[in-house]
Amino acid sequence: MDFLRPASWEEALAAKAEHPTAVPIAGGTDVMVEINFDHRRPEYLMDLTRIGDLHAWEVGDDTVRLGASVPYAEIMEHLRPELPGLALASHTVASPQIRNRGGVGGNLGTASPAGDAHPALLAAGAEVEVESVRGSRRIPIDDFYTGVKRNALAPDELIRAVHIDKADGPQQYSKVGTRNAMVIAVCAFGLALHPETRTVRTGIGSAAPTPIRARAAEDFLNAALEEGGFWDNGKIITPSVAKRFAALCAAACNPIDDVRGTASYRRHAVGVMARRTLTWTWESYRGAHRTTEGAA
């Protein structure tokens, strides 16, 4: 095994081009487990922690450019207003020690369906900035996950940052685990209201071979909200609408039975989380709506 220590992003890209099998390591929270347990013996290990750019974030007008290695603890602490869904998801990641070390880039690189960040990214809307010596490109998050632990990266590409749409409305995130802390998701759900476009977006984790959106559920809810004038009147969402939305979210799942839970439970739990997060976000939207009205 060789240990590569690129001092700059350019060096990292060059090294990755030269050794496409090199395994990038930043927080180490996935890679080191595999090495410690003899599941993986990469020829090259490439340390990205010396590249300062990866630990920085920038808040723009419409998006946040989040360096791939910004640790979850920083997201929780500093980006809650801009990225509330991702901040909530970050808080559910493993333990304080892991949140101090792990970042979204690792979640994306591993592309495990159980990665905690994915549902929040899917719901918020995001693009993954990847680069190789051949050039840079942005992959829409919807196209990023290509299979179980597979993503759209070419062998010579590295993840540099994620551009996440700034929240224009309430976002929520829930994850079911069989322990009250330090637990891998049995399944997870992210929901974002986008009042500016009058749409909702969802993200589901650990309930299909890849992280997914519940598109039929989104379409249904978008139509129902539009039809009922909910975005304008700020009324409580009809229980039957919430129920149907939850059922469609559950139906979007394609889960398996494994040691962490049954497929049937996962489908059920995604439905419950969909209903609850819809209630929470909508209540929050209504609260904001009423405040705005009061101020007007």
Binding site: H91, K175, V176, R276
Partner: peptide
């Protein structure tokens, strides 16, 4: 949420 079932995973705010 730290004092509710699900803990930090934010699954309930008292519902159920």
């Amino acid at each position: 949420v730290r004092q509710l079932p699900g803990g930090l995973s934010n699954t309930t705010h008292g519902e159920g």
